[in-house]
Design a protein around this nucleic acid. Structure first.
Length: 250
DNA sequence: TTTTGTTTAAGGCCTT
DNA sequence: AAGGCCTTAAACAAAA
């Protein structure tokens, strides 16, 4: 069985929507999240069609990232500077595609107002914290104990979205996550007050865990669904990004 | 300045 | 015909 060529579609336009292409790219990455530039690279590497007219389709793809609730923008870690955020899939959006097929969507994934507000608030808070951290670093040598451990992530969203993470194998860099989660309030105020007296004098947690904590539920849920997709596609011995066998007509 | 991200608008195609 | 999904264009803002 020859391995499907990355140029399967040659110069022809692949039958995937931008949402599908983006989902493929995200799924293909070890952490199940990618910056925009890496999403572009995934697509142009595999589908020569998209090596032309890059302005056009990249604008469309960015539109999809912003417009669709199924994509979640995760702020960069302060210790991994660069342009733009990381993009991942909302775990509740994993069943968007029928039968694991990336060719057709079951339905548009839409978060309810409250869900969306909550998610946005948490992500904004995380981004604010990162900004505050960077500003503090730029201002001068940070006192080692000044990292606000109050911000260590204990978001209710995390526990909601990843109810049973222990069932999943730790196969990603997320293994660096500390096992325990400090029980602290997660509030924007706390994030914006790095010198708050409620800060613990204990040694700072490494910043590397912040984004990981934020992303862990997405990553774990993504891994689970990814495994399901691969299983569904296995009988056809095709990778998930190739067209599935035709669905029975009616 | 370039890249990244958000938003609005419009039109095509398909299904119901 | 209406509605949903998708694509494309474009204006604009923010960040690096």
């Amino acid at each position: 069985m020859p391995r499907p060529s990355r140029d399967s579609y040659g110069d022809q336009k692949p039958p995937y929507s931008y949402i599908s292409l983006t989902a493929m790219a995200i799924w293909s990455s070890p952490e199940r999240m990618l910056p925009l530039s890496e999403i572009y690279r995934f697509i142009t590497d595999r589908f020569p069609y998209y090596r032309r007219n890059t302005q056009r389709w990249q604008n469309s793809l960015r539109h999809n990232l912003s417009f669709n609730d199924c994509f979640v923008k995760v702020p960069r870690r302060p210790d991994r500077p660069g342009k733009g955020a990381y993009w991942t899939l909302h775990p509740q959006a994993f069943d968007m595609f029928e039968n694991g097929s990336l060719l057709r969507r079951r339905k548009r994934f839409k978060l309810q107002k409250g869900e969306k507000d909550n998610l946005n608030a948490e992500l904004a808070a995380l981004a604010n914290f990162n900004r505050a951290f960077l500003a503090r670093q730029a201002a001068g040598p940070p006192p080692p104990a000044s990292i606000p451990t109050a911000t260590l992530y204990t978001s209710p969203l995390c526990s909601q979205l990843s109810p049973e993470p222990a069932e999943l194998p730790d196969v990603t860099p997320m293994t660096m996550l500390p096992r325990e989660r400090p029980r602290r309030a997660f509030t924007i105020d706390a994030l914006l007050e790095p010198d708050s007296p409620r800060l613990s004098p204990s040694p700072p947690q490494p910043m590397i865990s912040l984004e990981a904590r934020m992303a862990a539920p997405y990553v774990l849920a993504a891994q689970r669904y990814h495994a399901e997709l691969l299983q569904a596609a296995a009988h056809a011995l095709r990778p998930c990004y190739l067209p599935p066998p035709p669905l029975p007509v009616a």
